[in-house]
């Protein structure tokens, strides 16, 4: 092998996602299991934790909560609760790919709950995510997501895991017609934010949804009327994110929600991205504006 070819190969290994992750993701999507998952998230508002029953079968994944259950998979979301069913289906979506700023490395074999192996995803020199995948099904038994400064942001782990399927996950024959979400376009949301790209846009209640991803994390920006009340988020008081005030933010262990207004519109961002990515993303989206900001800038500039 020539020196050039070796260098090229080294470069490729260093920058491209290892093909293994794609295989793992496909395999994990097909895995059949029943388990109990703990999710812990260290947020700016404190530590949040939650335990849920999770099962996956035939490409669909179900969580069971206090009020009912949610089944998701293949662009569908079915919520079943005592009062009825909500069935959402998205128009065909663009192809998944992983951002080339991530490097995937296979790690060691480990034996915890089950025989498994680790996969690490690095962004530059820092560890961004670590998966402990079940050796037989590739289901992510443990997931760790890190902030840019190396601190743990989200940790999820199965407390119980049984690799068996459930054939009766959803009786599709008894489902009502889905609430179908056509593609649409948003007027003010850019095509990229931070290193994330806008993959698809859809019609949403009261506005448009733009779905962003970097292959590892994902978030949606909903462009809605300025008169939107933020679904209770606006009641939370404002926080400063990346030097801009005027954001209303709430966490659940699995996701962050941010609401803000500009003079013309309002936006809701929902996603699983880590906080340092959120700062970068918000910097590229329309920023909150309110009179007080102008007043403060005036005071800062002119005393």
């Amino acid at each position: 092998m020539t020196l050039t070819a070796t260098l090229l190969l080294v470069t490729l290994i260093g920058t491209l996602p290892a093909p293994d992750l794609v295989d793992d993701l496909d395999q994990a999507g097909d895995a059949e299991f029943v388990g109990r998952q703990l999710v812990v998230c260290w947020t700016a508002d404190g530590v949040l934790a939650h335990v849920t029953d999770v099962e996956q079968s035939q490409g669909m994944t179900r969580v069971t909560g206090r009020d009912g259950s949610f089944v998701i998979g293949e662009g569908k979301m079915i919520e079943q609760y005592a009062g009825g069913v909500r069935y959402l289906e998205m128009a065909p979506t663009s192809e998944w790919r992983l951002w080339d700023g991530y490097a995937v490395q296979d790690g060691n074999s480990v034996t915890g709950l089950r025989e498994s192996r680790t996969v690490e995803v690095r962004q530059g020199s820092s560890l961004r995510a670590k998966f402990v995948l079940d050796a037989t099904t590739a289901a992510p038994l443990t997931t760790e997501v890190y902030q840019g400064n190396g601190s743990l942001y989200r940790y999820s782990t199965f407390l119980e895991f049984d690799a068996r399927g459930d054939d009766d996950m959803v009786d599709m024959d008894s489902m009502p017609e889905p609430d179908y979400r056509e593609t649409a376009s948003a007027a003010t949301v850019p095509q990229s934010a931070g290193h994330y790209w806008a993959a698809d846009s859809y019609v949403a209640p009261g506005g448009v949804q733009v779905f962003f991803t970097d292959g590892l994390f994902r978030f949606s920006v909903f462009e809605v009327s300025r008169k939107s009340d933020g679904g209770g988020l606006a009641k939370l008081g404002t926080v400063d994110i990346g030097g801009n005030g005027g954001y209303h933010r709430a966490y659940t262990p699995g996701a962050v929600s941010v609401f803000w207004r500009t003079p013309d519109l309002a936006y809701v961002l929902v996603g699983d991205l880590p906080p340092d990515h959120l700062v970068e993303v918000l910097a590229d989206l329309p920023t909150p504006s309110r009179p007080a900001l102008l007043k403060r800038a005036w005071r800062w500039a002119f005393g």
């Binding site: 994990a28 849920t52 996956q56 662009g75 569908k76 996701a255 699983d272």
Partner: peptide, 17 residues
């Protein structure tokens, strides 16, 4: 719902709801 179109790891997405 949209996130579940991407391959694998639904189990992490579903935690958001």
């Amino acid at each position: 719902a949209r996130a579940s179109s991407d391959p694998g790891f639904n189990v992490l997405q579903v935690q958001a709801v």
